[in-house]
Amino acid sequence: MGYRLKPKYFDDVLSALSKHYDIMAPALMPFETRHSAQEVVGYRKIESLKEIVVDKKTFFSPKEILFPPRETMFYFTDSKIRESEYEEKNKIILLRTCDLNGIERLKNMFLNNGDVKDNYFKRRFESTKFWLIECDDGFDSCFCASMNSNKADSYSTAIKFTEEDILVDSNDNMFSELFKSYGVEEDYKVSFIEKNKLEVKVPLSENINPAVFEHDIWQEYIKRCIACGRCNTSCISCSCFTTHDIIYDDNKRRGERRRVWAGCHLDNFSIMAGGHDYRTKNGERMRFKTMHKIYDYHKRFGKHMCVGCGRCDDVCPEYISFSKCINKLYDIIEKENDK
C-alpha cells in the first residue's frame, strides 16, 4: 500500500525523521568545484523537499556516505591501537536504482569478499536506510538496463516525485506509519526503467581472452586519457582504497592510519614496494578499469561491477565515454568469436 503526500507534509515527515536520521539526498553542493558559477549536484544532508534535486544527475555518487573519501581506521600510541569510533547519526539515503545496485556491488567487495568483513563499511551500511527515487526517463548517459541494474528490491521505501505531490511506498513499518499519518492512501508501486536511450552490449565473459589486452583499442586511450581520476571518484562501484600512516608532528610515537580512495586511473595506483610502476600508460589504466568493471568482478560475484549510472561519461573532461568503450569492445570480441 502506498501513500500520496503533499509537499508540506513530506517536509513534516522529513523533519520528524531528522530527530533520528541524517537525510542524505541529491542536492546543490555549497561549493563550486571545477568552474566558477557552475552548480554542482552531489550528496549532502538535507532538511526539506525543496533542497532535493531530481532533474539532474549527481556529479559524485552516494558511495561517499558509506565509504568516505578519507577515513581514520585506527589510532596508535606506542604499542597500543584504538579503532576509530563511529558516532554519526543513522542515515537515510535517497538514491536511484543504479546507485542502490552500486551499493550492493560495494557490499560484495567489503562484506562478502572472503572471511573478513570490513568493519568501517559495515557499521555505516548497517545504520543506513535506502529510499529509492523512481526514475522517469533517466538521463542521456544512463545505461542501467544494459547492465541489469534497472531494477532493485533492497530498498526500504520507494518515492516518486511528481509535479504536485510525492508518492511513497514503504516496506518499513516505522516509515509506513509516518507516511500514513501525513498522507492519503494510494495504490502506488515503484516502476522501473525498461530501456535507456543508450544501449550497451557487454561482451560475454567466456568470449574474453587475454589477446584483447593487446588490442589496438587501448592505444586511443593512451593519447586521450589524462589520468585525472574523475571516472573513479564519481563511480558508485569503485571501491579501491589505499592506506596512509600519519605520524603526528608533535609526537612521533603517535599517529593514525587512514584510508583514502584510490583509483586505477590516478597516478601511484600501481606503484609497488621498491617504486616499480607496472601500469604507467593511461590506455593500460582504461583497459584495467574496463576489464574490472565488465569481466573480473563478474567472475567472482556473478554480476558486472558497472551498474550503468553513466557518471564516468558525464564527468570526463576529455569526453571519453565508457559506454562507447564497452560497445567497441563488444564489436571486437564478438567479431573475433564469429570467425
Binding site: F31, E32, T33, F59, P69, C228, G229, T233
Partner: peptide, 10 residues
C-alpha cells in the same frame, strides 16, 4: 579545477 573529489573548491 584539478581536484577529482571536490576537496579543493572555490
Amino acid at each position: 579545477m584539478k581536484c577529482p573529489v571536490g576537496a579543493m573548491t572555490r
